[in-house]
Design a protein around this nucleic acid. Structure first.
Lengths: 348, 348
DNA sequence: GCCCGAATTGTTAGCGCTCACAATGTCGTC
DNA sequence: GACGACATTGTGAGCGCTAACAATTCGGGC
């Protein structure tokens, strides 16, 4: 209170006040065991009195560690990326790291490169790149950066360490579920071609049909948005009565658009056409009808990504080979089944 | 290529290679005008060759600036917070700042205080707190921190500098719209009591009814989730035919639940009951029916928040009095009107 | 050819912390 | 009561950069 606050107090100031050396203050702050209780108390009192806070930059300079990780993401208002981001931050925090985020509107080689530069200038020790577009993956492999990078959502083929939900498996689960429910064929509304996840879902869908001895119907493309789903839904409505009874949509938002288009066309879901989505956004359970979908465990994605990144930073794991895969889970609801469970009745 | 990379090169290494002093390297990097072109080229070549990158911590220590801002947020997978977060980061980046985020599961005095401590240890120069709960606002005013803090979504009454969308106005727009459409009374499904935004919306709704000489019907409460909206919707369905013809729901997700409950109860929207929401999430346009709602301009919230925070950091604005208010906008769709516009036809 | 001011470059001190090591104190043992 | 082992504290040297100032160089005017 009586201290001038022109410059924040330094460790030396605290030391003087407590009658010890600055190194002892450092020891108290660092929880070093060999400090007498009495001394520790004196120091802590001085710290409290002066409102001292350790200077981040000086500490980082001396230790050569910033304890900060970077994240590059795009489309962060979508449920998937937002959930991943949240999980990443939480996992990093649990490990004592702070997270600096750069959110991109569009993920291109240029913007990605800029983002990495920026984070580099910000002193991050490593970066998680949520980079579902293929172009971004290639860029990642080529870009030079002085820290390890873990990719999320790039698919497992890359030369970059990565963490992925098994999109292929998810698509298989959804497609197989529809086939098992008695549908002869399953149509597919895919995401943008440039997205690895979209491609993997197409592959899983196609493979499942082939294994069942069914020819894959025409493939439709959307851009993940409800509007693109709506437009595709209008097209799909035209095929009702000509072999269309089931659609696997590559994400829940597009599925929402499909549902609306079908309803407007007088097509009933699931009696006339069954619809399955992907992601399990919180709203899916309340669509009309509630949506069967594939749930991705973003919390695990976050945890595993941070764990892998820290391994790379500490040099525990050789870079290049590490690929983590996470299993998705099918959530069955009324949109693919005549029976409609009550919302909130079961955890799913 | 031929250089040992055991330790990253320092400015002195670059200087030696270029045959100049380290200060000249610093000048080149800092775009200082008084450097001969020839010298600059030499330095840049050396930097390129050695893959030199300026050390963040040393720079921050010397300049006493980290060029990093902190953000504390909760519920970051919801559309509103996620959009705000995105806008904040983008605005900060445009000003040359990096953003460190702490995402909280629950916003309490303890978690908020912890988050601020953490960011403080991370060397941030200022913090934006997305703190819509009332408890958090009080905490913010009391907590001591060595940097300025701007609150978002706390309402404008606080002693803390803050940026807010005018929730009261938004609620008035929605309620007045329903009254103007001929409804005698407008019911309200509110958000949690602890949320300032929920309270402001209740106030706006109530005031509009009073000004129209209408008695406010029973107030319902939800927790922002579709499920709570669904449950409230079941209750509301029981009042159809007994004076219930219009409901103003405090957010779009709950409105989704209400729509479903009404539909299941055989109540038609908007013919029997009109429903309006709040937020304009991307899905709202594709609900059944498309939802009339109140749009909040999160991009502006982000820009204004960063601008205010930087003003405080630079000492341009005295702390304490600064309150920024942003106007929301009514978006009319089919859920309150017999006419259903085509999705995507108009930018709304 | 010399002088002055501007342009350009170099030198010297920190910024506030941690690390390595040195110095001191403490205790039990023989 | 001296000695060694260990606990506790202090000292000095950077970490890699920027800021302030000093030194040098370069022109042009006379």
């Amino acid at each position: 209170m009586t201290h001038s606050q022109l410059r924040p107090p330094t460790m030396a100031d605290v030391a003087r006040q407590a009658g010890v050396s600055h190194q002892t203050v450092s020891r108290v702050l660092g929880d070093h065991p060999n400090v007498r209780d009495e001394t520790r108390a004196k120091v802590l009192r001085a710290i409290e009195e002066m409102g001292y806070r350790r200077n981040f930059s000086a500490r980082a300079l001396a230790t050569r560690r910033t304890r900060t990780l970077g994240v590059v993401a795009s489309n962060t208002t979508l449920y998937g990326p937002a959930s991943t981001l949240f999980a990443l931050e939480e996992a990093a925090r649990a490990e004592g790291y702070l997270v600096s985020t750069v959110s991109l509107r569009r993920l291109t080689v240029e913007t990605l490169s800029e983002a990495l530069d920026r984070l580099s200038e910000g002193g991050v020790e490593g970066v998680v790149a949520i980079a579902p577009q293929r172009s971004a993956v290639e860029a990642l492999a080529e870009l030079r950066h002085p820290f390890p990078v873990v990719a999320v959502g790039t698919g497992s083929g890359a030369e970059v360490p990565s963490v992925n939900v098994d999109q292929n498996l998810g698509a298989r689960l959804a497609t197989a579920h529809l086939l098992a429910a008695g549908h002869r064929r399953v149509w597919h509304l895919a995401g943008p071609e440039d997205w690895q996840e979209a491609a993997d879902r197409v592959d899983g869908w196609r493979a499942t049909l082939e294994e069942a001895g069914v020819e894959a119907p025409m493939l439709l493309r959307g851009d993940w948005s409800p509007l693109s789903g709506y437009r595709a839904g209008q097209e799909l409505a035209g095929w009702v009565g000509r072999g269309l009874t089931a659609v696997f949509v590559a994400n829940d938002q597009m599925a929402l658009g499909v549902l609306r288009a079908l309803r407007e066309a007088g097509v009933r879901t699931p009696q006339d056409v069954a619809v399955a989505g992907f992601d399990d956004i919180p709203e899916s359970e309340f669509f009309a009808p509630p949506l069967t979908t594939v749930r991705q465990d973003f919390a695990t994605v976050g945890k595993r990504s941070i764990a892998l990144l820290l391994d790379l930073i500490e040099g525990r794991t050789p870079s290049g080979t590490s690929q983590v895969s996470i299993e998705p889970q099918l959530v069955v609801r009324a949109s693919t089944f005549p029976y409609a469970p009550q919302p909130g009745a079961a955890p799913g």
